[in-house]
């Protein structure tokens, strides 16, 4: 067991996004890494019918002492990692508090109402400015742009994990990630995923 201390116990992480963005893989990778380090980890997820193009959210609870419930109580998220900016805001409203660390991708995925022209998705820069007035530490990063530069938007979840690793709030090193991804994905995908992790690490 590593001697890494948690800032708070249980430490609560939410990874959120839109169905299809690789939210579940990101939470499982992180959960697996932490469980291997000897932490008690609970991951609460919902997936299935309601997630076809809908919001998805994973609750990770990390503890030395107690197996926490699969749902974080409202207002008790310590970190919110969001693969989509509007989802970040939705989750922050329910689970955030003034000390929550918010890290979000700045690339929007339009809800069907916006695609149809029935609703407007406001400019993300405007949203970012408004969020920072309430939560000055919030970080918006161009993770999708970086993933696309690496060749595939699907890498956005890994870019965001890299950025989370850099924040140093949960024990998640490049080596931890390399081991976890090597165990889960085909060897051919290892290099590109490590590049995505490094890219994210360098973005905060």
């Amino acid at each position: 067991m590593s001697d890494v201390k948690l800032v708070k116990d249980p430490y609560n992480v939410i990874i959120t996004g839109v169905g299809g963005q690789g939210n579940v893989l990101a939470s499982r990778l992180l959960g697996g890494i932490l469980a291997k380090k000897g932490f008690l980890v609970t991951i609460g997820e919902t997936f299935g019918a309601s997630q076809r193009g809908g919001s998805v959210m994973s609750h990770l609870r990390i503890s030395r002492e107690v197996l926490a419930s699969p749902q974080i109580p409202k207002g008790r998220a310590d970190v919110i990692v969001s693969l989509e900016p509007a989802e970040a805001l939705r989750v922050l409203a329910l689970y955030g508090n003034p000390a929550t660390i918010l890290l979000t991708n700045n690339h929007p995925i339009y809800p069907v109402g916006v695609i149809k022209g029935d609703m407007v998705y406001p400019p993300v820069a405007e949203m970012e400015a408004a969020v920072k007035e309430v939560l000055p530490t919030a970080r918006f990063i161009a993770a999708t742009a970086r993933a696309l530069a690496l060749g595939n938007s699907i890498l956005v979840n890994i870019v965001m994990l890299g950025a989370l690793g850099r924040l140093n709030v949960v024990p998640l090193s490049r080596e931890d990630f390399r081991e976890a991804i090597a165990a889960r994905l085909a060897t051919g995908q290892l290099a590109i995923n490590l590049q995505a992790f490094d890219a994210g690490y360098g973005m905060v």
Partner: peptide, 16 residues
């Protein structure tokens, strides 16, 4: 404050 922001900046996501 955040709920007000979410209402303004986070359009709801319908199923499709």
């Amino acid at each position: 404050a955040v709920k007000a922001l979410a209402a303004k900046y986070a359009p709801p996501r319908g199923m499709t």
